[in-house]
Amino acid sequence: MLCRGVMRAVRPSAVGLLSSLTLKESRVCHRTPVSVCHYSSSEEEKISRYPVPYKKNLPYDIVELMEEVEMKGGFLPNVFKVLAHRPAEFRAFFAYYNLLMNKETGGLSKADRELIVVATSAHNNCLYCVVSHSALHRIYSKKPTLADQVAVNYKVAELTARERAMLDFALTVCRSDTVTDEHFSSLEAHGFDREDIWDIAAIAAFFALSNRMAHLTDMRPNTEFYNMGRVPRDKRPPGTENDRPE
């Protein structure tokens, strides 16, 4: 079962995607969480070419996680629904995701981490990850256009020298180019230490897996992702103040 105290302690904005969590239980959920609907691979919701299981047939810990994410973010990202096709792999995927993307140590900010995902996912032509992680970058960075620039061509994006060095190295790993001591020297000159360099490489490597699974399943982004973080809350038209999920 999820550790709710830990989940509550993590900032719930940016759809929450994942917070610190523990997935242990293997019981099937025999109740319907009040805030979540059942999902299946119906004609109305083509988010995967594989069957999307009904929540009532999923292990209880996975249902609990989905409920937490939807409650905090306002919607359930499709990656949760699609990967639930294989619960054991779902747990492994999100455990590693959490360790890479939500850690509070090291020199990479959450915006840095999301920018790495956008750049490498664009290279891998992954629609789902580019759209969803661009949304998260906009929210964490408060920059509504930078992720779009990076998704098209990071080499001409309005990046700092530090961000450019970070993405140059992330793409080196993404392309499986040879990593040399010169890469380390360049990154260290921009303030990254060796643990940060590991993080950059691990994020690029992990999302190479994620991108390819998205291709396999034909995973489709939630429509909510497209507008997230584009318009500051105080500049929204009247009546739309509550549009951004919290």
Rank of each mutant, 00 (worst) to 15 (best):
R11H: 10
E89F: 12
S19E: 06
E224K: 03
A135I: 03
S20K: 11
A151P: 07
G5M: 04
L99S: 05
G5Y: 04
C3Y: 11
K155T: 15
S109L: 04
C126F: 11
L187H: 01
P144E: 05
W198L: 01
V152I: 11
V15I: 14
L83P: 04
R175P: 06
I139T: 01
M7D: 10
A161I: 12
A84Y: 08
G16C: 03
L209H: 12
G5R: 08
H38S: 15
T223I: 14
M166T: 03
A92H: 11
I62N: 07
K72E: 05
K143T: 05
K110T: 09
S121G: 05
D243E: 11
I200K: 01
M228G: 00
V117H: 14
K155N: 13
E70Y: 06
L136P: 02
S134N: 10
K235I: 00
L58I: 13
P77S: 07
L21M: 13
R91P: 03
R244T: 00
C126L: 07
E188M: 01
A204T: 02
T105D: 01
E25T: 11
I139E: 02
G16W: 09
L65I: 06
L209Y: 13
I200L: 01
T240Q: 00
L65K: 03
A122D: 08
A165D: 08
A157T: 04
H30F: 08
V36N: 07
V117Y: 14
D193Q: 01
R230E: 00
G73T: 06
R164T: 13
H85D: 15
N124L: 15
S132E: 03
N227C: 02
T240D: 00
D177Y: 10
S48Y: 09
D193G: 01
M166D: 01
M1Q: 14
C3E: 14
V150E: 07
N102T: 14
I62D: 08
L171R: 05
W198P: 00
T120R: 10
A88I: 13
V150W: 09
V156D: 10
F192W: 00
I116D: 09
S26D: 15
V152H: 11
S121N: 06
K235N: 00
E68T: 14
L99Y: 02
E188N: 00
G229K: 02
L21Q: 14
M66T: 12
A201P: 05
R236N: 00
Y154N: 04
R31P: 01
Y96L: 15
D243T: 03
K56L: 15
L209A: 09
K142T: 02
L167Y: 05
T120G: 10
V152F: 10
G73S: 07
S42P: 05
Y54W: 13
L115P: 03
P238C: 03
V34W: 13
Y128I: 02
G106I: 03
P51T: 12
S40D: 15
R113S: 02
V231T: 03
F94D: 04
E67D: 15
V79G: 12
D199P: 02
S109A: 06
L209F: 15
V28M: 11
R27A: 09
K142A: 07
K72F: 05
N227R: 04
M213Y: 14
V156L: 09
M101R: 07
T32S: 09
V34E: 15
V10C: 05
P238A: 11
D243Q: 05
H85S: 14
L2K: 06
C126V: 10
V117N: 11
L23T: 08
T22V: 14
G16T: 04
H137Q: 08
H30K: 12
E67P: 04
I203Y: 08
